[in-house]
Amino acid sequence: MTTAPTPVPAPAAADPSGGPGAPGTAPAAPASPATGTPAGPSARPSARRRPRGGAWLATVPLLAFFLVGFGLPAVAIVTGAFTVSSDAETGAGSFTTANLTDSVQGAYWTALLSSLKLSALTALIGTVLGVPIAQAVLTSRFRLLREAVLTASGVLANFGGLPLAFAFVATLGNAGEVTRMFHLTDHGWSLYSFTGLAVTYLYFLVPLMVLTITPALEGLRVQWREAARNNRATALQYWRYVALPILFPSLLGGFVLLFGSAFAAYATAAAMVGATVPLISRQIADALSGNVLVGQGNLALALSLDMIIVAVLVMAVYLPLQRRSARWLS
């Protein structure tokens, strides 16, 4: 005995008014077994109902602080760099390019080159020393050691100015404890020189590099090392062909940060070496205070504009590489 097949209901006819039978209309959402209400998109959290235009209001205080703290001084620097000093006889407030021309000549150009050389050298040494220290701390089995090193790095990275100069003078100065103990003066050591200033800068640049590169080192995945090991790659080959190419933008970013910190440092150099080592920051201070010539305030603004241009050029190299590194470490 055979059973008659169950008739299949015919599809609903298309409704011109866009009703339930209209083609392309989403079917009704099934009812939730707990509440009996549809469990479709309408049951989701009302994230779409929140006003989209109100989120940026939280950034208003930050934007206002940035405008007052950075925007207005930047405008004042650019305006003053192209303006004649108020005591000039050729007309106060008139436009001129003499300030920028003078800022890249003579002693000012020497100070700018010396600052660039000091900043690049200390940033490079700080990068080379900071990366192995950060890697050793991350791979250490002692959690207490890791926390202690990172905490100390945070403190030392912000330790500068007069206290740092006094500490190095008492330690490595002409009458310092370490200098007398090892007779460093007999070997040509002088803290009040370009080399001594570079060693002093490394005291806070190396910890700063440790803090900067640690998140990037943590972003290296274990699978990459295991894949390199399965392909019979040595540790040196892994770092050369896998890790360092990925970390290169982060390394460059750390180098830029160290370069900027050394380039803008003033109090430590002013208290320790004075005018022995020509630096652009010292030239700006002398121009503002009238230590050498009176009425050179606009020239100081031109020197500041030179520093801003250097920082912008360095950041222009860093930002594209940083976006490339973010795709790997994210």
Rank of each mutant, 00 (worst) to 15 (best):
P5H: 08
T6L: 11
T6N: 06
P7S: 02
P7G: 04
V8S: 04
P9C: 11
P9Y: 06
P9L: 15
A12D: 15
A12S: 15
A12F: 11
A13M: 14
A13P: 13
D15F: 04
D15N: 09
S17H: 05
S17A: 15
G24Q: 05
G24N: 07
G24D: 13
T25P: 00
A26P: 15
A28P: 05
A29Y: 02
A31I: 05
S32I: 09
S32C: 15
S32Q: 07
S32N: 15
P33G: 05
P33R: 03
P33S: 03
A34W: 10
A34T: 11
T37V: 10
P38F: 03
A39D: 07
G40L: 01
G40Q: 02
P41V: 10
S42C: 12
S42D: 15
A43P: 02
A43E: 07
R44C: 01
R44A: 13
R44S: 11
R44M: 07
P45Q: 06
P45E: 06
S46M: 09
S46W: 06
A47D: 10
R48A: 14
R48W: 14
R48H: 12
R48M: 13
R49V: 08
R49C: 03
G53H: 09
G53P: 00
G54C: 06
W56L: 07
L57F: 09
T59N: 09
T59M: 13
V60H: 02
P61V: 03
P61A: 01
L62M: 06
L62T: 02
L63E: 09
L63F: 08
F65A: 12
F65S: 06
F65R: 00
F66D: 04
L67M: 04
L67D: 00
V68W: 01
V68S: 00
G69N: 06
P73W: 04
A74V: 11
A76F: 03
I77V: 15
I77D: 00
